[in-house]
């Protein structure tokens, strides 16, 4: 144990030293190699000065470029290549993996489930987030309420899975229920259920976990946006005789529409990548499979890199529209700023 702590500490020190070494060292070297002295000819000074300013950005950027290339750009290309090969990546089989996926029942099930996640989770998270933001901003204990709703954001998907498996826990009908959901159901007079084994219901219950986590995110962002609405527009509407509900839907919502969209897409990205929750809760059993988990199964359990890669590419294609939209927004922001 002590050894591990020491190892961790020394590794932190090592990482920091490495970074300092690179950034300080490279810049020092640059300033050293292309140093200027007053004794040099004016032109030589100028040439060295400009050379330094031209080289320095790449010193700053080099590590980032390395990471982008090795961990993102190369994998995109390589994964696409692998998706055209067989299970061990040896034989080129054109789009056979894609046609397999198209015809595979589990894949279709997963894609269908992902689609359901894609609709349910962002909608519920954004909806609840907006509701809580609106309520909390009007009540004196709203700050505390927001903190509590926001708290799940900090918890890992695995931790959340344990928490919710406990909520959904099942005991036989003749025993006292220890899961709060079944306790509630039996209190209402219904028999307890093995929730995670009922198709469709189980998928929904998994989505509830992600909603539970993401609502806090939506709430924080939307709360900030709501506060950013100029108070004058609301007061003007009030003077015009609009009721609070009408003001909310016709004055406030339109002004935060972009933010709602941003929240929605951000949650969508999380949903498309969802893996941990399904892996920990049901591992895809009883028709709860999703693409993220299916990809993991094919790649690391079944050892078929071709099919795994194919599923990864499908996920990439699904996020591509959001990627393009993001780039457009960034470019627009770049243009004005």
């Amino acid at each position: 144990m002590i050894g591990q702590v020491l190892y961790a500490a020394s590794m932190v020190a090592f990482a920091v030293a490495l970074l300092f070494g690179y950034f300080w060292g490279a810049n020092w070297l640059l300033d050293r190699m292309l140093a200027t002295t007053p004794a040099m000819a004016g032109e030589a000074i100028t040439r060295r000065d400009s050379l330094r300013t031209r080289i320095r950005p790449w010193i700053f950027l080099a590590p980032t470029l390395f990471f982008l290339a090795v961990f993102l750009i190369y994998p995109i290309i390589e994964t696409f290549r692998l998706s055209l090969f067989d299970r061990l990546g040896q034989n080129f089989i054109w789009f056979a993996n894609y046609s397999w996926a198209w015809n595979d029942a589990t894949f279709r099930q997963s894609a269908f489930n992902n689609l359901a996640w894609l609709i349910v989770v962002p909608a519920l998270s954004t909806g609840f987030g907006l509701l809580i933001a609106v309520l909390a901003d009007r009540l004196w204990w709203g700050g505390l309420a927001k903190t509590l709703v926001f708290m799940p954001m900090a918890i890992s998907f695995v931790g959340a899975a344990v928490i919710w498996r406990f909520v959904y826990a099942y005991r036989g009908p003749d025993m006292a229920q220890i899961g709060i959901l079944n306790a509630f159901v039996t209190w209402l007079g219904y028999p307890p259920q093995v929730w995670l084994q009922i198709p469709l219901v189980n998928s929904f219950l998994l989505m509830v976990i992600l909603v539970w986590i993401q609502t806090g995110f939506a709430m924080v962002i939307l709360s900030a946006a709501l506060r950013g609405i100029p108070q004058e527009t609301i007061e003007a509407a009030r003077i015009d005789g609009a009721g609070e509900v009408r003001i909310f839907f016709t004055i406030m919502i339109p002004q935060i529409a972009t933010t709602i969209l941003v929240v929605w897409t951000t949650i969508t990205i999380h949903v498309l990548k969802v893996f941990d929750i399904v892996y920990a809760m049901t591992n895809g059993e009883n028709q709860t499979q999703v693409l993220g988990n299916l990809m993991y199964r094919w790649t690391f359990i079944a050892g078929d890199s071709g099919r795994g890669a194919t599923i990864a590419i499908v996920i990439l294609l699904a996020v591509t529209p959001i990627m393009i939209w993001n780039i457009r927004r960034a470019r627009a922001a770049e243009g004005t700023g």
Partner: peptide, 11 residues
């Protein structure tokens, strides 16, 4: 937004 899953096998 590139999904993590994409990078697993190649890396």
């Amino acid at each position: 937004v590139v999904p993590l899953q994409l990078a697993l096998i190649p890396v």
